[in-house]
Amino acid sequence: MDLLSILSNSLRGAFGPEAAIYALAAVGLNLHFGYTGLLNFGQVGFMLVGAYGTAVPVVAWGLPLWVGILIGIACAIALALLLGVPTLRLRGDYLAIATIAAAEVLRYIYRSEWAEPLTGGVFGITQFANDFYDFNPFSGPFVVGPFNFSANALWVMTVGWGGTLLACGLVALLIHSPWGRVLRSVREDEQAARSLGKNIFSYKMQSLILGGVLGALAGSLMAINTQALTPDVFMPILTFYLWTIMILGGASRIMGPVLGAIVFWFLLTFLDSLLRQAIGTGVIPSGWLESSDVGAIRFAFVGLGLMLLMMFRPAGLLGKQKELRLDVR
């Protein structure tokens, strides 16, 4: 057992491109749930349209990547309108079911044979983000202590974390404005906000669009990071990851999703490396667990973590427990 390498793996996971991507998507989710009270369980759908919006125009029509990213954003706005019009008038739990179903519907459409000419169906599409890497200012790998990232990963990380921090800044500005005040009042009590002349539907829609666009940008970056895209990456479980991240960090805290993503990925990679090493070195006898089980165990722990968090510390790491108790729902 090499604890040092496990730790350095975990640290790499905590700050790697995936953590940045998840953080960005969770910032969007935080705007939905943390500040507006929308039970969006289809954030992965926004990531999906963002990712395919980015990749398809490049592969299918030979457009430059930045146009693709814009198309991805446009798709997210269209999806938010499509999803919001029927569901934002409904009670919260209906919204949860409708959003998770909508995300699944999208995944079915994108992997269907109809869409295959564009999306490559279940086989997906690859190699569309070379434009992005052409702009990579880093020439060599980055090695400092436990950190060891390739030049490309470093570039994705820079853009990812940079984008996440920008998004956090924007959310902070918005939330501390009268606009944010209305948003938070919608979270607390829609009827009260309505009685004071606020068009709550419009605010919920704005929140859905804005958070959805952040999700789509995260999806774009996810596609760019792997340079390969299949619809089955966007399973509902990805949304559950984002919820865990948001609640772990603290919902309705500006930096909650960022801290949540870092801690989440640290723990996830830690568990992964630990189990793999334990199985590899025979600490866990091979009859008990195979290394192919590690993925499943990891997911089970995510679930357990989400349960325990929600039961015992629903405010997360940054939240104030006292404030949460005021929540009467």
């Binding site: 938070r184 979270r187 607390e188 009590d189 009260a192 906000a193 009685s195 929540d327």
Partner: peptide, 11 residues
Amino acid sequence: TFQLTKALMRL
């Protein structure tokens, strides 16, 4: 106003 007061708790 409402019969059951609707204070916005976390504001």
